[in-house]
């Protein structure tokens, strides 16, 4: 056994010497780039497609590696503590701020170097078509008249859709007359169809088919502009929630301290991937907007959103900072 161990260790040392030089050289990437994916379902699929397309523009493959859990904190923690050489990147989102303020992670967005923004997504507010509500204003009025609480389905407390829900309720003055019903991804439309909840805030993709079939009505979407798939659906701002807006972005980031040239290489690969017609095509059916932004602009957006989310979460009593 001992001789075998020595042999193996010896062999490893020789190989390490032979290859050690290569890793220090300027050329990036010198090994596959690990892209940590924080969530399952569509976020994972978009990430996988992005990795696939980025690989075509780099010397090495980009490998999507799923590290879910803790609302993103597990994956962030992994990448944050990984070597900052550009071979470890994270498919991130606004969750970098929410995990920090909820106390799940001990570091905030400054632990990462932005690479590029890839896409944006907005949530949709839907109600049962039988409710007769056409706008958020209708809904608020009806609820106040009936004097009963509004049951709103969204993902768990502190999630993006929950924060959007609370902010929206605040701007239509229903925040103390609503009950948040947390649902797993995908469950809310059924509950809405069955009439167990009054409204739901989820990604539009979950409602579109029901909306077109006339069973559910999408009242509004939470972004600043209407989306291509739903040209007739107004923004929440237009629908009675004045001044309200919530947009989720997704992008790529690397641990702070990653060399400049590695970031640049990745940024360029990401830009080419987003422009690829296959990515644009997938966006239409999955339901997100390809929205590339270079790293400077992306960094500014992360910082601005962080401030906003911090303020919102503190106001809602969700912040532990």
């Amino acid at each position: 056994m001992n001789s075998m161990k020595t042999l193996l260790a010896g062999g490893a040392a020789v190989i390490a010497l032979a290859f050690g030089g290569a890793a220090r050289a300027q050329d990036f990437p010198s090994q596959p780039v690990e892209m940590t994916i924080l969530f399952g379902s569509t976020a994972q699929t978009i990430g996988q497609l992005l990795a696939e397309l980025m690989s075509e523009h780099l010397d090495e493959r980009v490998v999507p590696v799923s590290r879910p859990g803790g609302g993103g904190s597990v994956g962030y923690q992994h990448v944050q503590s990984a070597p900052a050489d550009g071979h470890n990147i994270v498919w991130n989102s606004n969750s970098i701020s929410t995990t920090y303020y909820s106390g799940a992670t001990s570091f905030d967005y400054t632990a990462f170097e932005p690479i590029a923004r890839i896409s944006t997504e907005v949530a949709a507010v839907a109600v049962n078509a039988n409710s007769g509500w056409e706008t958020l204003g209708d809904m608020a009025e009806a609820i106040r008249e009936q004097g009963r609480p509004l049951r709103v389905g969204a993902s768990g407390r502190g999630s993006f859709t929950h924060l959007a829900t609370e902010a929206m309720l605040e701007s239509i003055g229903l925040d103390d007359q609503a009950i948040h019903v947390p649902f797993d991804e995908g469950r809310a439309p059924v509950e809405l169809l069955a009439g167990r909840i009054d409204a739901a805030v989820q990604w539009p993709g979950q409602f579109i088919s029901h909306h077109n079939a006339g069973k559910l009505r999408i009242l509004c979407i939470t972004g600043t502009e209407r989306v291509e798939q739903l040209p007739d659906v107004p923004t929440c701002n237009e629908s009675g929630a004045e001044g309200f807006e919530m947009t989720m972005w997704r992008g790529l980031a690397a641990p702070a301290g990653t060399p400049e040239h590695a970031i640049e290489t990745l940024e360029e690969a990401a830009r080419l991937a987003v422009e690829d017609p296959r990515f644009q095509e997938a966006a239409k059916t999955i339901g997100f907007v390809p929205d590339f932004a270079p790293r400077d602009e992306f960094g500014e957006q992360i910082a601005a959103d962080d401030e906003r989310l911090a303020e919102l979460m503190t106001r809602l009593g969700l912040s532990e900072r």
Partner: peptide
């Protein structure tokens, strides 16, 4: 099945009553 759903979506099929 969530992964099946996103594979259907990426290939242009949107599950739901309209499908």
């Amino acid at each position: 099945t969530a992964l099946l759903l996103s594979a259907l979506l990426i290939h242009g099929l949107v599950p739901g009553p309209m499908l």
